[in-house]
């Protein structure tokens, strides 16, 4: 029970950080943390297929293409 509460709080905290951080690179890293915790939730909810997809796609490739896009544009939100 307490683990679930900690995971939920961590996930929502990382989500709020992704929303509020002005540095886009930091926001993307926070969004990747959200994806990672989401993947853990999928595993706990007995969905290993979905957990693998979320870890490989959500936390891995999505973050990579965000970083590439930030490289090509600007790092800071004005």
């Amino acid at each position: 029970m307490i683990y679930i509460a900690l995971l939920v709080v961590g996930m929502l905290g990382a989500g709020i950080a992704a929303c509020l951080l002005r540095d886009l690179l930091a926001a993307v890293v926070a969004a990747a943390a959200v994806s990672l915790i989401l993947s853990g939730f999928f595993y706990l909810l007995q969905a290993p297929d979905v957990a693998m997809a979320e870890a490989a796609i959500g936390a891995g490739l999505t973050t990579a293409i965000f970083v590439i896009a930030i490289r090509k544009t600007g790092r800071h939100e004005e």
């Binding site: 290993p48 297929d49 957990a51 693998m52 997809a53 490989a56 796609i57 891995g60 490739l61 990579a64």
Partner: peptide, 14 residues
């Protein structure tokens, strides 16, 4: 086992 085309494809792309 858990996994499949979409997960494996993402791993190959990474």
């Amino acid at each position: 086992t858990p996994g499949g085309g979409f997960q494996g494809g993402a791993v190959i792309a990474s």
